[in-house]
Design a protein around this nucleic acid. Structure first.
Lengths: 220, 220
DNA sequence: AATCGTGTGTGACTTTGTCACCGACAGCGC
DNA sequence: GCGCTGTCGGTGACAAAGTCACACACGATT
C-alpha cells in the first residue's frame, strides 16, 4: 500500500509539481500570506505537505537580526519539520507563509506510522531530505564565505527567477543576505552607479543580468 | 535480516559508543591524523562508519578562508556522505581526519541495497540524520548570528570538553569560528586581560570557565 | 650560531554591521 | 487640497571584525 504522500515527495525530484495527497487522516491547510506557521519553541503539529505557495524559514538572533535559512515550496520538505518529527523536539526556527499556502498537514502520529510501516514513503522522504540539505549547505557556504556584494547579487537573481523586476524592499534583501538594511542600501547604490540595476520603491529592475551572474558565480 | 550497521547507527542516539559492523562487503578503513578523506568534487566511495577518531568537515572559499562545518565521530553520520550517496553527486566539502580514524567503508552499491531493502537500516539512518542536522543548524545559527566573542567562547569550551587546557593554535580557532587569525589573536588578548584564559604557544588554559560559559549562553 | 618554519602580536586599512536621523512617498481621513 | 501616519530609502557616524603586512619569539634542524 503506497500512500499518495509518497507521490508528492517523489515529485520533488522531478520538479515542482503541485502536490496531491489524500491520506485519510490528513487535515487541509490554508494560510494567507504573512501567517506565522511556527516559531522557535513551538511543538510540531505534523508533517506539512504544500500544494501551492511558499514558506520562508528564518532564524532571529537576540539582537533582532534575522536571516532566511531556506524556502519550502510545492514538493519540498521542510527540514525543520522533518527534524522535529523525527527527534520529537520543538521547532528551532520561524516559518512564515510568504505567499498564500495551501496544502495538507499529516498529523505527527500518522507521519510516525508511515515512517514505521511504509518503506516507499521513507525512500521518498530520504531523497527529499537529501535535496533540501544540499540546498541548505550551499546556503551556509554563502553566508559564511561570500562577500555582501556576492550574496546580494545571488539574492537578487534568486528572487527574480526568470523575471526582470524583483519585488523586494531593502529590508527583505537584508534578511535574505543576513545583513543589515543600511548595508544593502549602500551596496544597491553601488550597483545602480555601475548601471547593473535600477531602483524604485519596493522593487528593483535588473538591467545587466550578466554582470550580476558573473558576480554571483565568482564566489568572493 | 538486520545488518549490524543498523546497530551502529542506533548507537548514535544513545551515545558515542564505538561502532561495530561486519557487513560482509564492507572494507576496513584506517587513516592517520591529517589525511584528507575527501575534497569538493570527489566522488563518494561509500558510506563511512567510524569506530574511533574524528573527521572534521570544512568549507574553503576562493579567498582561502576556511570554516569548520561539523565533526563526525563514532556513531555519527557524515551528512556530506549521506547526501552524496542519496543524490549520487560529488562531495561539496572537505573532510580531514583530525585524529587517527578507524572504521569501515560500506561501498555505495551495498549502501544502496541496504537502503532499498532494509527498513530497519533506513529507520536508524533517519534518526542519525535528524540528529546531525539539528547540530548543523545550531552551527549555522552560530555562524550567522553570533558575535566573534561568543563564537570564540563556544569554540574554546567545545574544544576543551572536560579538560582545562585546549590544544589549539590561533589558526585552528580561526577556522573553528569562521574568522581570521588576526581577529582571534586580538580577541584572545582581550580574554587574557579579563583573566578568563592564559595563553601559551599552541595551547590555551581556561581559568574562568564560568565567564566563558555565560558568554557562550548569552548568544549575541 | 645560522637558518627555517611555525605561532603570535600589532598597526593600518577596508568591509560591513549598527544606530540614528531625515527626507520621500503612498494611503488615508478630513 | 491638507495634514497625518507608516513604510521605504539614503546617509553620516561609529563600532566590530575581516584583511594585509610586517616583526618578533620560539623550537627544531643543520
Amino acid at each position: 500500500m503506497q500512500s499518495t504522500v509518497v507521490q508528492c515527495l517523489a515529485a520533488a525530484h522531478t520538479d515542482a509539481m503541485p502536490l496531491e495527497t489524500s491520506k485519510p487522516a490528513s487535515i487541509p491547510l490554508h494560510y494567507p500570506a504573512g501567517t506565522v506557521l511556527f516559531r522557535p519553541g513551538d511543538a510540531c503539529a505534523g508533517f506539512v505537505v504544500i500544494r501551492s505557495g511558499a514558506i520562508r524559514v528564518s532564524l532571529t538572533g537576540v539582537n533582532g537580526r534575522e536571516i532566511t535559512l531556506y524556502r519550502v515550496t510545492a514538493g519540498e520538505v521542510c527540514l525543520q519539520t522533518f527534524r522535529c518529527l523525527i527527534e520529537g523536539r520543538d521547532y528551532g526556527a520561524e516559518g512564515i507563509a510568504e505567499s498564500d499556502v495551501i496544502g495538507e498537514i499529516v498529523p505527527a502520529a500518522v507521519f510516525q506510522a508511515c515512517l514505521a510501516n511504509d518503506c516507499a514513503f521513507r525512500n521518498a522522504l530520504f531523497l527529499a531530505v537529501a535535496h533540501r540539505f544540499a540546498d541548505f549547505e550551499a546556503r551556509v557556504e554563502d553566508i559564511a564565505l561570500a562577500s555582501l556584494e556576492v550574496r546580494l547579487a545571488r539574492a537578487l537573481l534568486n528572487l527574480a527567477g526568470p523575471r526582470t523586476v524583483v519585488a523586494a524592499t531593502h529590508e527583505t534583501l537584508a534578511h535574505e543576505t543576513g545583513s543589515g538594511r543600511a548595508a544593502i542600501s549602500r551596496q544597491l547604490g553601488h550597483m545602480v552607479r555601475m548601471g547593473w540595476i535600477e531602483q524604485a520603491r519596493g522593487s528593483i529592475t535588473l538591467n545587466d543580468r550578466a554582470a550580476l551572474q558573473s558576480l554571483a558565480k565568482g564566489d568572493g
